[in-house]
Write a protein that binds this DNA or RNA. Structure first.
Lengths: 343, 343
DNA sequence: CCGAGGATTGCACAGCTGTGCATCAGGCTG
DNA sequence: CAGCCTGATGCACAGCTGTGCAATCCTCGG
């Protein structure tokens, strides 16, 4: 027992009357130990409360078992959902996740990656911000795998997981038109994430293909309050929209509340709303939001599968996943439309 | 450069033409290095992309810089908020948080703690579940500090952070009575957490002090759906309550939605609702929930302060914090009451 | 009963860093 | 110019584990 107080393999060896090597072999799967020796070691370990030191183990082995999750605004529903799923799945795969917060600036992402390298993390999963190209090469040189979720740029030795955001945007546009919306609108935050931009582009392109030039509101961070403010803005104009695609559920909730609480409008009779993420709140009865479901199990599986695969294929690879629509009642159905027009 | 591919201090030493010790001293604050040597080392380190190996550093030093967060259902708004704040503050204090999920069973909490010991974590912060007494002693023997947030049992060498849940419950009861509620009710999940039980007890005791025996609904997990189901239940009874205290915001949202969507009731005119946690959704206009604010900054500060303090005081200690009420519009105000009764 | 072969075990080293101790250089003072 | 003191540097070891290699033990077959 050292100054730290932690019990080491040597302590167990002494207590069990065997060599330290025997202790190490007992806790190494597939190593050759006699049943009797193993039993003695296990008994002594249990008595002393021995736990293999993963730090020292990571020093010798190529893998430390640590995976860094680099994320901003973890308290956001979608992020929390993804991080929860990721940590669980990593844990089931025998790894352990460490959280490194960023403020989304590139500098802080770089600092986060340096910290990950400092802990000899097996991999870093980037959920927010974008690492510098030089940093990505540094990671590669240090044997740290890089996973980029919904990031655009192609980086050496990194795998990207992307959604078909653009197609989802187009689907949102076609859906609003199909249920009879004459004045569709787009509500969007000003944070220029690639996936948000792609959703907007898909929406706008599909509409301009139909010769429609929709109202567009862009401002603020990707929060509820942004939706509330922008919703209040667009609904107070003369040519008030009758259908909105919000690039995020949080924004959609804000828009819905603006419509109901501040203008006395009905959703979906007066205003159809489509969101994106399928956050838990989307199924709450106050909202019942029709939205695109983030394929979280798919994202998580792609991450963990790729991490447990050998490192041979250093070629940058991209995994594409699709976000399907979840139908609820925030969009006018065709039958509803029939009754509401006759009424 | 080893098989791992990571660059070590020896590589930097060779490149800079100095001893490895000089490299180590360059990255150790307060060590004695000549400015010229330091400059050479820094240049070589920058060139090669060297990052001090925290695993090896943690092997020598008493502290690893790692802190384990043991938590269940991280995707829940309150948990996500707390974990986000904790990781940020820990990071600012030079530590890094690792997440260990549990399914709330005692066995999984024990496994989580063993894993934390395996990584020679400086501390473990338990947000969910309750560690076994033997495990707590094991932690203490291994030099691992234990922080229990809203857990009840007193454990050797552990610090507890508690809220005055009972008093909050009493305040909720008095508040409902003061605004004129005649038939207060309690809605509660069946998961027997200490803090939830204390809130309920405070509420019930205060009411029975006034000679009132309120309606009580208990069932299910601490989710929105539980509130929806229990709300539907109590509101369909003959002596429908006119005021509800929900032990959690999520449950309160369910109750509000049940009242509005399924019974056409108005909140607060027909039903006053009080929650607990002050989750972000509580301030959304669809709910505007009057609720007790979790003192998250206080909790986080207490954790981190205690972790950065020396280990002398091994006495079990308890930090008490208070949850103040946040007034919104889900409770009838006295002026509203005047107008609504005259109307 | 003896030899061979396989299973076990222990030694010693690698992996990376921090640090006590001794050494050495250099500057300042007398 | 000599001596002393301070600051810088390097050696060697500690900290904990995994593993190659050699030695040893046991068992089984002849």
């Amino acid at each position: 027992m050292r100054s730290n107080g932690a019990v080491s393999a040597r302590d167990v060896a002494e207590a069990a009357g065997v060599s330290r090597t025997a202790v190490s072999r007992t806790f190494t799967p597939g190593a050759s130990v006699a049943p009797a020796t193993r039993a003695k070691v296990m008994a002594a370990a249990e008595l002393l409360g021995y736990q293999v030191n993963n730090l020292a183990r990571g020093l010798t082995r190529a893998e430390s078992g640590l995976v860094a999750l680099i994320v901003a605004e973890l308290e956001t529903p979608y992020r929390a959902l993804l991080v929860s799923a990721l940590t669980s799945k990593l844990q089931a795969a025998g790894k352990v996740a460490m959280i490194i917060n960023t403020d989304r600036s590139d500098a802080s992402v770089d600092a986060a990656l340096r910290q990950a390298i400092g802990y000899r993390t097996d991999a870093a999963i980037v959920l927010s911000g974008m690492p510098d190209r030089a940093l990505a090469e540094l990671c590669q040189r240090n044997g740290l795998r890089l996973v980029l979720i919904n990031r655009d740029e192609e980086l050496p030795g990194a795998v990207r997981i992307r959604l078909d955001d653009e197609q989802a945007g187009a689907t949102a546009a076609r859906t609003l038109l199909r249920v009879g919306c004459k004045r569709p609108a787009l509500v969007m935050s000003a944070s220029a994430t690639v996936s948000l931009a792609a959703r907007a582009r898909g929406f706008l392109d599909a509409l301009s293909g139909e010769g429609i030039d929709p109202m567009v509101a862009i401002d603020g961070p990707t929060h509820y309050k942004t939706g509330l403010a922008l919703g209040t803005d667009i609904l107070s104009r003369a040519d008030r929209p009758d259908g909105v695609f919000c690039v995020t559920d949080l924004i959609a909730f804000g828009v819905i509340d603006a419509a109901r609480q501040r203008f006395g409008l009905r959703v979906p009779e007066d205003l159809s709303v489509i969101g994106f993420d399928d956050v838990p709140q989307a199924s709450w009865e106050a909202y019942n939001l029709t939205t695109f479901r983030q394929p979280i199990p798919g994202i998580v599986d792609a991450c963990v599968d790729w991490l447990s695969r050998p490192l041979d294929e250093t070629s940058a690879k991209t995994v594409y996943l699709s976000a399907d629509i979840t139908w609820r009642t925030s969009v006018l159905s065709l039958s509803q439309r029939a009754t509401s027009t006759t009424a």
